[in-house]
Deep mutational scan, measured.
Amino acid sequence: SPEEIKAKALDLLNKKLHRANKFGQDQADIDSLQRQINRVEKFGVDLNSKLAEELGLV
């Protein structure tokens, strides 16, 4: 269901964000992850996106 997909995506992105902060990645990478999280919260996951591929939806 779209809600489950959204939850999985947010979980994955939050893990990536945590790792980025923990290991001191570029601020641009961290900002990009934050924008992705905001986009998923607002609009859900686009099944044509790279994120959908990472989640194994495509």
Rank of each mutant, 00 (worst) to 15 (best):
L55R: 00
K50I: 08
I30D: 02
L12V: 07
F43C: 12
L47D: 03
I37M: 04
Q25R: 14
K8H: 06
Q36M: 14
A7D: 05
D46G: 05
A20F: 11
E54M: 10
G24S: 09
L12Y: 15
Q25T: 11
D29V: 15
R19C: 14
Q27R: 10
K22T: 12
L33M: 04
D31L: 10
N21R: 15
L33C: 02
L57V: 07
G24T: 06
K8V: 06
D29H: 14
E4P: 04
E54I: 09
D26H: 11
Q34D: 02
I5D: 04
A52L: 07
A9N: 00
A28C: 11
I37Q: 01
L12P: 01
L33Y: 04
P2W: 14
F43L: 06
E53S: 09
S32Q: 12
K50Y: 10
N21Q: 15
D26L: 09
Q34E: 09
K6W: 04
K50L: 10
L57T: 03
Q25G: 14
H18N: 12
L33S: 00
K50G: 07
K8D: 03
D11S: 10
E53N: 07
L12H: 08
P2D: 12
L55D: 01
D11Y: 12
N14M: 14
R19T: 08
I37E: 00
G44R: 00
V40E: 00
L33H: 01
N14Y: 15
R35D: 13
A9C: 05
H18F: 13
S49R: 02
G56P: 02
R39C: 15
H18D: 13
Q36N: 04
R39A: 13
I30V: 08
N48C: 13
V45D: 01
K6P: 01
K50N: 07
K8T: 05
I30W: 03
R35T: 09
L33T: 02
R35W: 08
I30Q: 03
N38K: 14
Q27M: 08
S49L: 02
L51A: 02
D31Y: 05
L12D: 02
V45Q: 01
L10M: 05
L10E: 01
Q25N: 12
A7P: 01
L51N: 02
A28R: 11
R19M: 13
E3I: 07
F23T: 11
Q25K: 13
K6M: 06
A28K: 11
S32Y: 15
L51I: 06
N21D: 04
D31F: 04
A7Y: 10
A9M: 06
E4G: 08
K15R: 14
K22N: 07
A7M: 12
K16L: 14
K22S: 09
K22L: 14
A52G: 04
